[in-house]
């Protein structure tokens, strides 16, 4: 599998480390009532067949964290965007 790192160009998957679901959002509340949200954030993951956005680090290259969208059924990689660019608030 090849992943098009936005910083380094296309590189083979061995240079990357997968973390998992990039759609989960870390809760901001520290109130006990938000515990369910935290549980979901830490533990609850979908396992879709089809497109899936994951946090992937280019650990064997520029070390940037990316959000890579790929099809789990076909292994086709649709996009790889720097997590920083994607998450940065305007």
């Amino acid at each position: 599998m090849l992943i098009p790192c936005p910083h380094c160009g296309t590189r083979p998957v061995e240079e990357f480390t997968f973390l998992g679901d990039a759609t989960v959002i870390r809760p901001t509340s520290l109130e006990p009532s938000s515990m369910d949200d935290w549980m979901d954030y830490v533990y609850l993951r979908d396992n879709p067949r089809g497109n899936y956005a994951e946090y992937v680090q280019h650990s064997g290259g520029c070390r940037a964290w990316l959000v890579v969208t790929r099809n789990t059924g076909t292994h086709e990689v649709h996009s790889a965007v720097a997590a920083k660019a994607m998450k940065a608030k305007p």
């Binding site: 990039a22 870390r26 070390r63 940037a64 964290w65 720097a82 997590a83 920083k84 998450k87």
Partner: peptide
């Protein structure tokens, strides 16, 4: 790297 880039960029 993750905490900065993905959580608090």
């Amino acid at each position: 790297e993750f905490c900065h880039q993905a959580l608090w960029p």
